[in-house]
Simulated assay, not measured.
Amino acid sequence: MKKAFLLVGIALVLLVVVVGGSYFWRQRQLHAALQAAANPLVTVSATKAEEKSVAPEATAVGQVVAQAGAVLSLQTAGVITGLEFHSGQAVQAGQTLLQVNPGALPGQLQEARAQAALAQSNFARAQKVYAIHGISTAALDKAQYDAAAAAGKVQALQDELANTQLRAPFAGVLGLRQVNVGQYLTAGSPVVSLENLQALSVDFTLPQRSARTLHPGAQVTVQIHDGDRVEQYDATVTAVSSHVDADNRALALRARIAKPTGLKPGMYVQVRLQQAAPQAQVMIPTVAVSFHSYGDFVYVLKPGPKHTLIAHEQPVETGSQVGQMTVIRSGLQAGDEVVTAGQVKLRNGDAVRINNAVTL
């Protein structure tokens, strides 16, 4: 009987151990599952900081200007009788663009030419008579001055008649026509703009601290976005302002663009001026930097427990941007792995997994 009670007691103890162990094992698994659900792995893209040779440079926003550009107008008022151009046309220097009604000018010019011919004939006759002492010196002088006055009147009328035509002062491309045939054109009214697109410059300003590196002949790079591409042009500084602007303490510069194909006056561009020899700099993609008013930072990935990666918020000091890369002056070293996509889902200390095969 005692042996039977002993066996029953052992069986009960074993049952309690098995049930209790099973319960505690399930609780542990549940606790681990809850922890995993509370702190799931965050999928991010990442890359390593690289050390590259970068030249210190100054950047500015500039505006493209034409070295030869003007809004054309006439000095003479009148009704437009002829238009010999269309909008956007390429023209040569001296090409006639517009004609206004000359009125009585052609008749006045013809009369003036006849009077000038008569005055010149009288002067020639007076010279012959004076040679034989037939007239006084005063009479000869009067004949000479009459001839000169008549010739001057002819020249004045010719110039006035020429002003009834608008001619291209230089070769270039016309803008949009602003007048029509039959319209009365007042003196000085704009007719059309003319720009020489083969000779373009860029005007920009740089802070006074860059003054020592600014001089005519300095090479600059001009960039403009064309859709998803960035077009780049070489330019040479041709002029530096002789004084610093008192309002913004900046120097104005003008650089001539070597081959300005595709650019037009008025475009905004980015100008880059190399200020020193290239130096080794730590660089990361600009998308990896979180820019904030209280300071810029990146997420650096470091090894964690059980072969995981932990994201740590790392303050950084950023420098210039070169294309899609940003120079990091302090806070990172070459080889540090930083998050480039998925930062919005991260908090400091989160465990992550890297997937660079997809865009996040």
Rank of each mutant, 00 (worst) to 15 (best):
residue 2 K to I: 14
residue 5 F to H: 14
residue 9 G to W: 08
residue 9 G to S: 12
residue 11 A to R: 04
residue 11 A to S: 14
residue 15 L to E: 06
residue 17 V to Y: 12
residue 19 V to W: 14
residue 19 V to Q: 15
residue 20 G to I: 03
residue 23 Y to I: 12
residue 24 F to I: 14
residue 26 R to G: 09
residue 26 R to L: 13
residue 27 Q to P: 07
residue 28 R to T: 15
residue 29 Q to T: 12
residue 35 Q to C: 04
residue 35 Q to H: 10
residue 37 A to C: 08
residue 41 L to W: 00
residue 41 L to G: 10
residue 45 S to R: 01
residue 46 A to P: 01
residue 47 T to P: 00
residue 48 K to T: 14
residue 49 A to M: 02
residue 50 E to V: 11
residue 50 E to N: 07
residue 52 K to M: 12
residue 55 A to W: 04
residue 55 A to Q: 04
residue 56 P to M: 11
residue 60 A to C: 08
residue 61 V to K: 11
residue 64 V to W: 03
residue 65 V to K: 14
residue 66 A to F: 04
residue 67 Q to P: 09
residue 68 A to D: 10
residue 69 G to W: 06
residue 69 G to H: 07
residue 69 G to A: 01
residue 73 S to F: 06
residue 73 S to K: 03
residue 76 T to F: 00
residue 77 A to G: 14
residue 78 G to D: 01
residue 80 I to Q: 02
residue 81 T to C: 11
residue 83 L to D: 06
residue 88 G to K: 01
residue 92 Q to D: 10
residue 94 G to T: 02
residue 97 L to Y: 08
residue 98 L to T: 01
residue 99 Q to K: 12
residue 103 G to I: 00
residue 105 L to R: 13
residue 105 L to I: 12
residue 108 Q to T: 02
residue 113 R to E: 15
residue 113 R to V: 04
residue 117 A to H: 10
residue 128 K to W: 02
residue 135 I to L: 07
residue 136 S to E: 09
residue 143 A to I: 05
residue 149 A to C: 05
residue 151 A to L: 12
residue 157 L to G: 06
residue 161 L to P: 10
residue 161 L to K: 08
residue 162 A to S: 09
residue 162 A to W: 01
residue 169 P to Y: 02
residue 170 F to I: 08
residue 172 G to K: 10
residue 175 G to C: 10
residue 181 V to E: 15
residue 187 A to E: 03
residue 189 S to H: 04
residue 190 P to A: 01
residue 195 E to S: 15
residue 196 N to F: 13
residue 197 L to K: 13
residue 198 Q to M: 07
residue 206 L to R: 07
residue 207 P to C: 02
residue 209 R to T: 13
residue 210 S to W: 09
residue 211 A to G: 05
residue 215 H to K: 14
residue 217 G to A: 00
residue 217 G to W: 02
residue 219 Q to L: 15
residue 220 V to K: 06
residue 223 Q to E: 14
residue 223 Q to C: 01
residue 228 D to A: 15
residue 228 D to C: 09
residue 233 Y to C: 01
residue 236 T to G: 02
residue 240 V to P: 08
residue 241 S to P: 05
residue 245 D to R: 08
residue 249 R to I: 07
residue 252 A to R: 10
residue 253 L to N: 05
residue 253 L to Y: 02
residue 254 R to W: 06
residue 255 A to F: 02
residue 260 P to Q: 07
residue 261 T to Q: 14
residue 263 L to S: 08
residue 264 K to I: 09
residue 266 G to D: 03
residue 269 V to M: 11
residue 270 Q to S: 15
residue 271 V to H: 13
residue 273 L to Y: 01
residue 275 Q to N: 13
residue 280 A to F: 03
residue 284 I to G: 02
residue 285 P to R: 00
residue 286 T to S: 15
residue 287 V to P: 12
residue 287 V to G: 08
residue 288 A to K: 07
residue 292 H to S: 13
residue 297 F to I: 05
residue 300 V to Q: 14
residue 301 L to A: 08
residue 305 P to A: 10
residue 306 K to M: 10
residue 310 I to C: 04
residue 312 H to Y: 11
residue 313 E to F: 00
residue 313 E to P: 01
residue 318 T to N: 11
residue 325 M to Y: 09
residue 327 V to N: 12
residue 328 I to V: 11
residue 334 A to Y: 02
residue 334 A to I: 06
residue 337 E to W: 10
residue 344 V to P: 03
residue 344 V to K: 06
residue 344 V to C: 00
residue 345 K to P: 04
residue 347 R to L: 12
residue 347 R to K: 15
residue 348 N to T: 09
residue 350 D to R: 05
residue 353 R to S: 07
residue 356 N to S: 03
residue 359 T to R: 02
